[in-house]
Simulated scan of single mutants.
Amino acid sequence: MKRTIGLTGSIATGKSTVSRRLKKAGFAVVDADVAARKVVEKGTPALEEIRQYFGEAVLTDEGELDRAKLGEIIFKDAKKRAILNKIVHPKVQAYMLKEREALFKAGETIIFFDIPLLYESHLEDIVDQIIVVRTSRQTEIERLMARDGISEEKAIQKIDTQIPIEEKELRADFVIDNDGSLEITKKQVDQLIRHLKNFQ
């Protein structure tokens, strides 16, 4: 039976660590961040829509998307963030579904959709099960500060743009707790992998 499993979490909860482990075990992973970069490449309809709404200022001299400049704009303005999502999200979804179709045709039976904003984007219906990678709020804040070199206030602001991780946990089929050491996280992922391979 073919299955699509959504992998999500919140910013700096360690979803990428889990994704890498799954890839290492041989599972196909379709990454929403990769899709999001692909659909706004130079010459794409999405980039043109972004230029029309946000202006030339969000483009580099080479005509590519300046992600840092766009990020500054949407971080401060929920309305503009919603407009960007309306432009980009449908195209990301279409890209991922096309990738899934190709992978299933190639013989894959389990495909992971790595989607950071799975719940925020209301994409529960395109997957069969959902795995949430969680940490405590304090760990999330500390990791985000260290990763991005930002203040605690800025880290909290970024985290608070997403649905609380506690709510995501309640809606998940499987939770990986990444609040401890890397070894503890790996053991949980390996347990999940064994479970999945038994049903392939």
Rank of each mutant, 00 (worst) to 15 (best):
K187R: 15
R20E: 12
P90Q: 04
P164C: 06
E56M: 09
E120C: 08
A28V: 08
M145K: 15
D66G: 00
E56T: 14
P45R: 11
Q93P: 10
L7A: 14
K168H: 11
I50Y: 08
E153H: 07
K91M: 11
K38E: 01
S151A: 04
R3P: 13
A172G: 04
I50C: 03
R81T: 01
F54G: 00
A82E: 13
N85F: 07
A12N: 06
E56V: 03
G9Y: 01
K158R: 13
Q129T: 11
V133L: 11
G14W: 02
G180A: 14
S10W: 06
V133K: 12
L59G: 05
Q200F: 14
N198E: 15
D77H: 07
K80F: 02
T135Y: 05
D128H: 07
R51S: 00
V132C: 03
L7S: 12
E152A: 13
K186C: 15
E108L: 09
D31Q: 00
S19H: 08
D160K: 12
E101F: 05
A32G: 05
T44Q: 08
E142Y: 06
K105G: 11
E167V: 15
Y53T: 01
A94M: 11
E101Q: 07
G149P: 12
F27R: 01
F54E: 00
R194I: 15
L123H: 07
G14K: 01
A155H: 01
A68K: 15
N85A: 13
R194G: 15
T4Y: 07
E64I: 00
L144C: 10
L47C: 02
K187C: 14
I74C: 14
S19Y: 03
S121N: 12
P45L: 02
E56C: 12
S19A: 13
K86P: 08
Q157Y: 07
L123Q: 08
H89G: 11
I11F: 04
A68V: 09
T44F: 01
A78W: 14
E120N: 05
G107E: 05
D179T: 12
I126G: 04
H122I: 12
I141S: 05
K158A: 08
R3C: 08
S121H: 07
G6K: 09
E167A: 09
K2H: 13
D177M: 07
V29L: 05
Q129W: 10
N198F: 06
H89Y: 13
K197C: 02
